Simulated scan of single mutants.
Amino acid sequence: MLKRLQLLIPPPVWLLLSVGLAYLLATFSQGGFVPVMPSWLVNLQWPLVILASLIAVMSVWGFAKKHTTINPHHPERSKHLVINGLYRYSRNPMYLSLLLLLIAWCLHLQAWLSLLSCIMFIGIINQLQIKPEEKALKQHFSEQYLQYCRKVRRWL
């Protein structure tokens, strides 16, 4: 079942599903059993949105400069391995930007329980998107990609 879902659903769709789950979890936690997030933490939501937006733009720009695809369904069509810019610090800054947006949404909801959606998002993106991409990139770029993986972490 999981094998069939690999590279099938675009990461932004997984983000939207996670946003919905966060909302449901926040609604469920409004019974007063879970403490509310402190205001200083909630106030981080807009800086996170700005940071996520910058990361997303810089990540896409890195691919555009190399004239390679950002299509998450076909990593094997990559013409160049992007390893500079933000890609020196994260192999997946685009997915990191989506995660930061989800965290900002959870902060907006002010419900600790909603953060469980972030854990689910990370697990789904790792299994259904990143690992199949890594397999394709390993086949396509072989030793160059393996060296890159040894130097740079998957998320941060």
Rank of each mutant, 00 (worst) to 15 (best):
Y89A: 05
N92G: 11
A22Y: 06
P38E: 12
Q30L: 07
A104Y: 11
P35A: 06
W14R: 06
V57A: 11
V49G: 08
L116T: 13
L128I: 11
L107T: 11
G123Y: 00
K138F: 00
P72S: 05
V49H: 06
N71L: 09
L100P: 06
Y95T: 03
M37F: 11
S18M: 12
S18G: 14
I124T: 13
A22W: 05
C149F: 03
P38S: 13
I50P: 05
W14A: 02
L54P: 03
S53D: 13
M58F: 15
E134P: 07
K151I: 02
N126E: 15
R88C: 10
S59Q: 03
L17K: 04
L156T: 13
L102T: 07
S53L: 14
I122L: 15
P93L: 02
R154I: 08
Y87S: 01
E133S: 00
R153E: 14
S114H: 04
L5S: 10
A64H: 10
A136Y: 07
W105V: 12
L44F: 14
P132R: 05
L8D: 04
W112V: 12
A56H: 12
Q30Y: 04
L7Y: 02
L54S: 08
L16K: 01
K66Y: 03
P47R: 06
S114R: 01
Q6W: 01
S117R: 05
L86A: 08
K65I: 06
L81M: 06
Q147R: 12
C149E: 14
Y87T: 07
M120Q: 09
T69K: 11
P38R: 12
A52E: 08
L16S: 12
E76C: 02
R150C: 02
H74T: 15
A104V: 09
K79L: 14
L102V: 05
S90F: 03
Y89R: 08
M94D: 04
L107R: 09
V19F: 14
P75H: 05
I119D: 06
R4W: 09
E76L: 02
L7F: 02
I119Y: 11
E143S: 06
T69Y: 08
I70E: 05
Q129Y: 08
L16P: 02
H67K: 14
Q129D: 09
L137F: 04
Y145E: 00
Q144E: 12
W61F: 02
T27F: 00
T69P: 11
W105F: 15
L115N: 04
F28K: 11
P93G: 06
H108P: 01
P38G: 12
W46T: 14
L7Q: 06
V34I: 15
L128P: 04
R154F: 11
N126S: 13
